[in-house]
Amino acid sequence: MLDVLTVATGAAALLLGAWCGWAAYRDQPTKDWHFIGMAVVTLLALVQLIVGIVQLARGEKPEQGTTIFVAYLLGAFACVPAAGFMSLGERSRWGSLTVAASGVVLAVLEVRLYDIWRG
């Protein structure tokens, strides 16, 4: 996998988590700017999903198994959008906190994806 893409996605996820965590601390719901940030992070995760599938199609294999690698790729891609939809239903500080938590979860998933690919 592309190490730069993994690091960029993880860093963007942590920034999103900090930004939405700050909004939750100030007792604010997610706003339009937060959703733009979620879209950027989701786009990075989509690019990572595509790159991962292309590398698998070219015959490259992750060290810890293809099935678990694809499962983590799909989970990483779905993490932030799922939290974004949940934050739409909860228009309070808890919606922002949900998105902040998803940013941290995505960063952890990125570390795990790196471990699965490299062994």
Rank of each mutant, 00 (worst) to 15 (best):
L49S: 06
L49V: 13
L49H: 02
V51E: 04
G52K: 00
G52N: 01
G52R: 00
I53P: 01
I53Q: 13
V54I: 11
V54A: 06
V54M: 10
V54Q: 04
Q55G: 04
L56N: 03
L56Y: 09
A57C: 14
A57N: 11
A57G: 08
R58H: 14
R58W: 07
R58A: 04
G59D: 06
E60R: 09
E60M: 13
K61W: 13
K61N: 15
Q64T: 10
Q64A: 11
Q64N: 07
G65Q: 14
T66P: 06
T67P: 04
T67W: 12
T67A: 12
T67D: 12
T67I: 15
I68F: 06
I68M: 13
I68Y: 07
I68S: 11
V70F: 04
V70G: 04
V70Q: 08
A71N: 07
A71D: 10
A71I: 14
Y72K: 07
L73Y: 01
L74D: 13
L74T: 10
L74N: 13
L74V: 14
G75H: 10
G75W: 01
G75F: 06
A76C: 11
F77N: 14
F77M: 15
F77D: 07
A78F: 10
A78Y: 03
C79E: 09
V80H: 01
V80N: 00
V80L: 05
P81A: 15
P81N: 11
A82Q: 12
A83P: 00
A83D: 00
A83R: 01
A83C: 05
G84N: 03
G84T: 08
F85S: 09
F85K: 06
M86R: 09
M86Q: 14
M86Y: 13
M86V: 15
S87W: 01
L88R: 09
E90M: 13
E90T: 15
E90C: 13
R91W: 15
R91F: 05
S92Y: 09
S92F: 11
S92P: 08
R93A: 02
R93H: 05
W94S: 03
W94D: 09
G95Y: 05
G95M: 05
G95W: 01
S96D: 02
L97Y: 02
T98G: 10
T98P: 06
V99P: 00
V99Y: 04
V99N: 02
A100R: 00
A100I: 01
A100Y: 01
A100Q: 00
A100K: 00
